[in-house]
Amino acid sequence: MTELGAAEHRFIEAMGLHFERQGGTRIGGRIHALLMLAEEPLSLKRIAELLKVSAASVSTNIRACMAMGLVEPASVPGDRQHYYVISSEGWESRLHTAEDAMKAFVRVCQSALATPHLAAKPHLREAAEFCDFYLAEMAGIAERWRASRATRPGRTSKAPKGRTA
């Protein structure tokens, strides 16, 4: 990846702000956006250069992106630097994270509803009912996503984790 144009910068900054609004870090969002645009694995050093941030900041935030399942390491034959790409399973990882958060939330609500004097609280009951509805509606979404991807014309095959350039 050479230099970034105005459109790329706008997208990267918008993604940074989006991540920040969602409780993440702006630099994490910017890294994710940059890797979405990259056509080859990028090293920590190159990410830092393109985003004009410190390598230490990239290192810290790349680990957070990896923990969220958005980014994965990649290797470049003959090169010992650490390289990164968008995770081949990142979107499904986001689905699973949202589902796990909703399940945890509903457990808290259900525990409270088991207490007799809280059981009649309408907002608490509605929250638990919404969670149940949401989880039922989302059931199987990852499988439907994979199926829809497999049938698209011109679809390239999914690369395995730790792919090489």
Rank of each mutant, 00 (worst) to 15 (best):
T97K: 10
P77T: 12
F133W: 14
F11S: 03
E99W: 06
A120C: 07
C109Q: 09
H9M: 10
E49N: 08
V58W: 00
G69M: 01
A55P: 01
V71R: 05
K45D: 14
R146I: 03
R107D: 15
R80L: 11
A142F: 03
V106T: 13
G154C: 05
A74M: 06
A139Y: 07
A159R: 13
E89Y: 09
Q81I: 04
H123G: 15
T60Y: 14
E3S: 12
E39H: 10
L51F: 03
A159Y: 00
T97S: 15
M36W: 07
R107A: 14
K52N: 13
A159P: 03
L35C: 04
S148H: 12
L50W: 06
S57L: 09
H117Q: 14
L124F: 05
L50Y: 02
P160M: 09
P160H: 10
R80P: 08
P160C: 06
S111T: 15
A33Q: 06
F19L: 00
V76Y: 02
L70V: 06
G90N: 00
M138L: 14
R26C: 06
H9F: 12
E99F: 02
Y134P: 03
L34Y: 05
A119G: 11
S148Q: 13
A6L: 13
Y83R: 04
P116T: 06
M15F: 02
I62F: 05
A7M: 08
G23R: 01
L113E: 06
E92Y: 00
E72C: 04
C65T: 04
V53R: 10
E8T: 00
S88P: 07
Y84T: 00
A56H: 08
A127N: 03
E89G: 08
L42W: 02
L4R: 07
D100M: 08
A104W: 01
H117E: 15
I31N: 05
L50E: 01
L34M: 05
T115Q: 15
L135N: 04
L4N: 03
G24P: 00
E13R: 12
M15H: 02
A98C: 08
A101T: 08
A150F: 00
L118F: 12
G140S: 04
